[in-house]
Design a protein around this nucleic acid. Structure first.
Lengths: 220, 220
DNA sequence: TATTATCTACAACGCATGTTGTAATTTGCA
DNA sequence: TGCAAATTACAACATGCGTTGTAGATAATA
């Protein structure tokens, strides 16, 4: 990219569109924009971010190269918006499923994990993309993403911490374990070539079996 | 890169040098070459593969851009050689520590894990690089790397399988568990920003504690 | 010292890249 | 219909890229 300072969408902002005067509220505009994001995601996943050119994206969307900039600010921004698309809803799983209203910490954890995998399974490749390419984002956006990740981890740790005094969990280091669980959740994405024998539900069972051995005070 | 077919080092080959007539056996030649690899590794880790130019590598090594090609065949080859540097020794840990000569499967597993982490800890960033950038390698080299990975996993699974009939391990799906263990070993690299509170030995303890809960038939 | 093999300096090639500017066209609305 | 806003078409820019070729310098060998 030509040096002109980092200009991808800021952390919480809804990514003000690229058009000069366009309010970005038009339905077609949004549709076209999200199409760019989806098509670009496919390409980035398949070929890698650096190996995908704006001209590739233009071809895939049918939008002229130059006009892409009518909808987005930069190539970098596209990447950020891809992450935003699935990473933001992931953060809200805890609230959406009202997990804090479940009284049993074991059920809390199981629900959380099931939903996280269920959700993550729909964005397997995008998660991989996040791991692979997030480094190219400007620091600010990177921070934003890591903050979201940390937020989910702390939610998991919260569940664990609740279960320890209740004697349903037995965990020495809740922070480490929460991190590990979050990390294990990505196994299905990260090592998919070795996970092909398993269907998603099988994987959830295996993973829950795995995790419950680690955290439950009385396994089985 | 200019299209001219994939030309990085083949799977097992010792990467025939770039020089036309040079046998590549000269000590200085090898020294210079491995310096290129090391310096390039640093740059790739810091800036990413695509964001690092041959001119950057030239600057870092003090070798003229054009003359880099006297030592290596292509930019791609450098990446492959970086992976080769640490990935090959990792594969040989099982033999080097004569793990199959240990009779107790629990000690086998513990030794294997300890050594893998101990080794991996020295190449934390390189492992990250492997996860991030291996996709840019030609398929053949990629296969080679995944084969090595699978080899280690199957060694772990071998240990697990030995322990199950001896009733020291209790594992439903040894393949899944072996995969998971291999994956967990990379936690320290992959999520280092969350692992900073832990020293390497602390991490080994935590991880062994974690894994033993999963695999041992009688934890504690 | 003469000759060959190893290494270096330097310039250049050809191409693909992200991005911009602008004029024309279409659309939405009064 | 007429005007303004939204959208498109097209060409161009500037630059950085991986790689090559070659002529000269140095080191090793005899």
């Amino acid at each position: 990219m030509t040096k002109k300072g980092r200009q991808a969408a800021a952390c919480k902002c809804k990514s003000s569109c690229g058009a000069s005067k366009n309010t970005g509220t038009s339905a077609v505009f949004q549709k076209r924009k999200s199409n760019i994001i989806k098509k670009a995601a496919k390409l980035f996943i398949k070929k890698g971010y650096a190996q995908t050119s704006m001209r590739d994206i233009a071809k895939a969307t049918g939008i002229d190269v130059g006009n892409l900039y009518y909808f987005i600010k930069s190539k970098e921004e596209i990447l950020y918006l891809i992450f935003d698309m699935f990473h933001k809803p992931e953060e809200e799983i805890f609230e959406r499923f009202e997990i804090n209203k479940i009284e049993d910490p074991v059920q809390q954890l199981k629900t959380m994990i099931t939903e996280l995998i269920g959700f993550g399974g729909n964005f397997r490749q995008e998660i991989l993309l996040l791991y692979r390419e997030s480094r190219v984002l400007p620091k600010e956006n990177l921070k934003c993403i890591m903050a979201r990740e940390s937020h989910v981890i702390s939610q998991i740790e919260g569940i664990l911490k609740e279960g320890v005094p209740k004697k349903v969990f037995k965990i020495e280091d809740t922070s480490f374990t929460a991190n590990m669980i979050m990390y294990e959740l990505a196994l299905y994405s990260m090592r998919h070539w070795n996970m092909t024998p398993y269907l998603k539900n099988e994987f959830i069972d295996l993973l829950w079996n795995h995790i419950s051995k680690v955290v439950l005070s009385r396994p089985d």
